[in-house]
Amino acid sequence: MKHAALSVVAGPVGIVAYGLVRLWGRSDDVYGPGLDWQAAHLAGLAGMVFFVPAVVALSRLLPAGRWRTGVVAVTLVGLAATMVQFGADMVEGLLAADRAEMSALSSDFKDIPGVEMAVYDVVPQLFFVGLLVLTGMLAARRRLPWWSVPLLLVGIVLPAVTLDLLAVGGLLMLAALAPALPILPRETVRTEPSVVAG
């Protein structure tokens, strides 16, 4: 069960690392393609990967049901789209010789029918919406304090205002979810036998 707590921490930490490396990369006004671009996006991708078990672990603090299943499914779909976005950005960074060529490759990818909506504009947002709803459900069940919901919302909105606030957003997300850490082992251990028996 230590893995569940690790994933809940590592997801937001990945976003923090992404934001910090991005700021460092932009400090010389030459960000991407290059090592800084790849390192930032690798950190972000790692955070998204860790959010998969984190979402599943947090959902297990709720009673099984259609709402829980639906919210988890929506959140994971958004995560999958976000991972594709990070992967595409990294591939474009590897293939491009300079920023202009990277932008051209990105435009070519987005020109594929459905890609811009599925990978950039719409579907990735389902991750944030689903995580916010999941947090609200946990707060309603008193598995999280009420303030986790507005704190998470601020953590989601700030990077949308400017990507320079990614690290701050990640820290706020971590603070919002951290109160669940002590109850992850107890709750999961208690519910697993009933799942097996059922």
Results as ranks from 00 to 15, higher is better:
residue 154 V to E: 00
residue 161 V to C: 01
residue 160 A to G: 15
residue 191 T to A: 09
residue 173 M to I: 11
residue 149 V to H: 05
residue 192 E to I: 04
residue 170 G to F: 11
residue 155 G to T: 05
residue 190 R to A: 15
residue 186 R to H: 11
residue 166 L to G: 12
residue 171 L to E: 03
residue 150 P to Y: 01
residue 148 S to E: 04
residue 169 G to F: 04
residue 163 L to M: 11
residue 159 P to H: 08
residue 144 L to Q: 07
residue 163 L to E: 15
residue 190 R to Q: 13
residue 171 L to D: 06
residue 172 L to F: 12
residue 176 A to Y: 10
residue 161 V to E: 01
residue 148 S to D: 02
residue 186 R to A: 15
residue 186 R to E: 14
residue 178 A to Y: 12
residue 185 P to N: 10
residue 177 L to V: 05
residue 167 A to W: 14
residue 144 L to C: 06
residue 156 I to E: 03
residue 155 G to S: 06
residue 161 V to R: 00
residue 180 A to Q: 02
residue 170 G to N: 12
residue 184 L to C: 03
residue 169 G to V: 09
residue 163 L to V: 07
residue 175 A to W: 07
residue 166 L to Y: 14
residue 149 V to I: 09
residue 174 L to H: 06
residue 183 I to D: 14
residue 185 P to G: 12
residue 158 L to T: 05
residue 151 L to M: 15
residue 171 L to A: 14
residue 181 L to W: 04
residue 191 T to W: 00
residue 160 A to H: 08
residue 159 P to I: 06
residue 178 A to M: 08
residue 171 L to T: 06
residue 179 P to T: 11
residue 148 S to Y: 02
residue 169 G to P: 13
residue 191 T to C: 00
residue 180 A to M: 05
residue 177 L to F: 13
residue 189 V to T: 09
residue 170 G to Q: 07
residue 153 L to V: 03
residue 176 A to H: 09
residue 169 G to I: 04
residue 176 A to L: 13
residue 146 W to P: 00
residue 147 W to H: 12
residue 154 V to T: 07
residue 149 V to D: 01
residue 186 R to T: 13
residue 189 V to Q: 14
residue 153 L to K: 00
residue 163 L to T: 11
residue 192 E to G: 00
residue 150 P to D: 02
residue 190 R to W: 01
residue 190 R to M: 08
residue 156 I to R: 03
residue 155 G to V: 10
residue 170 G to R: 10
residue 174 L to Y: 07
residue 179 P to Y: 06
residue 171 L to V: 15
residue 147 W to P: 07
residue 178 A to D: 08
residue 146 W to R: 13
residue 167 A to P: 06
residue 147 W to K: 03
residue 152 L to C: 04
residue 175 A to T: 11
residue 161 V to Y: 09
residue 189 V to F: 08
residue 192 E to P: 00
residue 156 I to M: 12
residue 187 E to Y: 09
residue 190 R to D: 13
residue 187 E to V: 15
residue 183 I to E: 13
residue 165 L to Q: 09
residue 149 V to M: 02
residue 149 V to Q: 09
residue 172 L to T: 11
residue 175 A to L: 15
residue 187 E to I: 13
residue 166 L to N: 14
residue 173 M to W: 04
residue 154 V to R: 02
residue 182 P to K: 02
residue 152 L to Y: 05
residue 179 P to R: 10
residue 155 G to Q: 07
residue 176 A to D: 10
residue 156 I to T: 14
residue 147 W to I: 07
residue 166 L to S: 15
residue 151 L to V: 15
residue 183 I to Q: 12
residue 185 P to Q: 08
residue 162 T to G: 01
residue 155 G to Y: 04
residue 168 V to L: 15
